[in-house]
Design a protein around this nucleic acid. Structure first.
Length: 567
DNA sequence: GCCGTTTTCGGCCCGACTGTTTTCAGTCG
């Protein structure tokens, strides 16, 4: 079984952490971290690229040296550089870095002077008073560390929150802050504004006449468990759910540069700052200034990007995945708007009666909905699906404003294809096919069976939507090893589509995978995957992820009139 | 360790806040 991108990235991160504790050249450490980030979010399998003999030093942030190290890791499974460092510095030390307030310098000091290696060592040293004597460790630090250790024991390491769950929390925070007297502007920033699939915390930026007052007001938010930090321009609270929320308040003239800065992503922000330095300018939260200190931009983001000869970049694209070049050459995508969605491609019939679904669809501005139920394997199941199909036909014949498609979800076994039931299959408008992903299929490659399925469906003149291609789960990597390039090219050739869906147990392709699929000419199908009426709103999050994947309306089947969805 | 139309050396983003200091280091974002 070949090594995954995230496994390679973890090795580099581990090395960077250990070098950090050793006090190595910080720029070298940054290079390893940067490479880890690039590898982690890269849409293709690095191991496959090595097998194909492709030149890895073409990847951003990866030069000749790192390309060679990656090759060694992929081919031999060994990482000699990491082994050497682990001989000098105990690898378990990186566990200590997860404690807020403990950075590499303090970890090094604890290890060198007290021999502290593990979390248990740390607790003992804190309790018997040996830590308190160290330079930089006062009584406050000791009690903070004990509190953090307790938190870690109770809750485990902080997990990232799905944006689906963060969305209502963000909305309530913005509602609360908008009610502050003296607020001029306030909005979400950070990874939430970039619509990342999961968020680690929430960042909010505001312009206000009374900054410190607004921070105090923020710290009094009803759902606060603890105020972590309360400064003049910045506050951090921890909600009862454990979620960290940051607020920065600046003057109106700095709102745009502050918003841009705290929207990130970090690599995107750094790259803009580098452009400023190159021009002899200075960019910080408070504005963009020339050498004489004259303000060139600050109040809004448009002005900031314009100063560099770029179009305004939508937050979803600010990930250093090619957006800077596209903005400079005026080639940014015209991102899929939420209101361009004309229908939902996969809704279970159990959600509601057709008439009620039609009402809900109308309220969402939809023209059509695809009704999807599991494809049956026995006689009674066939009968039920046929009855459902008849019901849909009768409803459509009634001339309602909303059209319903008949479809079914079909699990494609490894080494298999479509079920041998063309009578029933051809009663459907299209098929929703997903690769088998049971316990024990980790690392399996469903590419061949899915290609076969696409061919079989084409012979029956049936369009296919491919779901759950990589077996991804929130907070975990994909469990299937599908060749996405091959999927995209074959689907494009035959007129099939690939799904984006944000139901936690039915995840579609990720943002960077989406971007890659579009480059290969694939068409996207967005679905709520709804099993209940409120789930219909999950479409919003599919749109967000499609936007992160550079999707335009023309790439998305959902933007078409019902007669043309699969043309 | 990466990177480059001010290239093969010498740079590498920048500020807020805390806890520890008596002017600043470490951490964080």
């Amino acid at each position: 079984m070949s090594i995954t991108n995230s496994e390679i990235a973890s090795l580099f991160r581990k090395l960077a952490d250990l070098l950090d504790i050793e006090g190595a050249n910080p720029f070298r450490i940054r290079a390893y971290r940067q490479a880890a980030l690039v590898i982690d979010t890269f849409p293709r399998s690095i191991a496959d690229m090595v097998a194909n003999g492709e030149d890895l030093s073409q990847l951003p942030g990866i030069g000749k040296d790192l390309a060679g190290k990656i090759q060694t890791i992929v081919k031999t499974g060994d990482f000699p550089t990491l082994d050497e460092v682990m001989e000098r510095t105990p690898p378990v030390l990186t566990d200590l870095l997860q404690i807020p307030g403990l950075g590499p310098r303090k970890v090094e000091l604890l290890y060198e002077s007290l021999g502290v290696e593990t979390l248990a060592d740390l607790e003992t040293a804190l309790r018997n008073g040996r830590v308190a004597g160290l330079p930089g460790f006062g009584p406050k630090t000791v009690s903070n560390l004990l509190a953090e250790l307790e938190k870690l024991r109770l809750k485990g390491p902080e997990k990232r929150l799905p944006i689906v769950e963060a969305d209502p929390i963000a909305a309530s925070l913005i509602r609360y802050l908008s009610a502050f007297e003296g607020v001029i502007k306030v909005q979400m920033a950070g990874s939430f504004r970039r619509r990342k699939e999961t968020v680690g915390d929430l960042d909010i930026v505001a312009a206000a006449r009374n900054g410190p007052g607004m921070i105090r007001y923020f710290c009094a938010f009803p759902d606060v468990r603890q105020v972590e930090l309360r400064g003049v321009t910045r506050g951090t609270i921890i909600l009862k759910s454990g979620l960290h929320v940051d607020l920065r308040v600046v003057g109106e003239k700095s709102y745009g540069t502050t918003l841009a800065y705290f929207t990130g992503a970090r690599s995107h922000t750094i790259s803009i700052r580098k452009l400023a330095v190159k021009n002899g300018w200075k960019l910080n939260e408070y504005g963009l200034f020339d050498a004489a200190g004259k303000s060139l931009a600050g109040a809004d983001e448009q002005g900031l990007y314009k100063a560099f000869g770029m179009a305004w970049i939508p937050p979803e694209l600010r990930e250093m995945h090619g957006e800077m070049e596209a903005a400079r050459s005026k080639n940014l995508p015209d991102l899929l708007p939420e209101n361009a969605i004309k229908g939902d491609l996969r809704v279970a019939s159990s959600v509601a009666p057709l008439s009620e679904l039609a009402n809900r669809a109308g309220a969402l501005g939809y023209e059509w909905i695809g009704i999807a139920d599991p494809f049956p394997s026995d006689r009674s199941g066939r009968k039920k699906l046929q009855t459902r199909n008849d019901r849909i036909d009768r409803f459509n014949a009634g001339g309602a404003a909303v059209h319903f498609f008949k479809t079914a979800t079909i699990e494609i076994p490894l080494n298999g294809g479509l079920p041998d039931d063309s009578d029933l299959l051809t009663q459907l408008d299209y098929l929703c096919c997903y690769p088998a992903n049971h316990a024990g299929s980790e690392g399996a490659d469903p590419t061949e069976s899915l290609i076969r399925t696409m061919d079989q469906a084409k012979a029956l003149d049936l369009p296919v939507i491919l779901l759950q291609l990589t077996g991804r789960q929130i907070n975990a990597q994909g469990r299937l090893h599908v060749n996405l390039d091959a999927m995209a090219e074959h689907a494009a050739k035959l007129g099939h589509a690939i799904e984006i869906c944000e139901q936690p147990d039915q995840l579609g392709v990720s943002d960077t995978q989406c971007q890659r699929l579009l480059q290969k000419g694939a068409r996207l199908a967005l679905a709520s995957g709804a099993m209940s009426p409120t789930d219909l709103s999950m479409m919003k999050y599919a749109v967000w992820q499609a936007r992160r994947g550079w999707a335009e309306s023309r790439n998305v089947a959902n933007c078409r009139h019902w007669k043309e969805v699969f043309r």
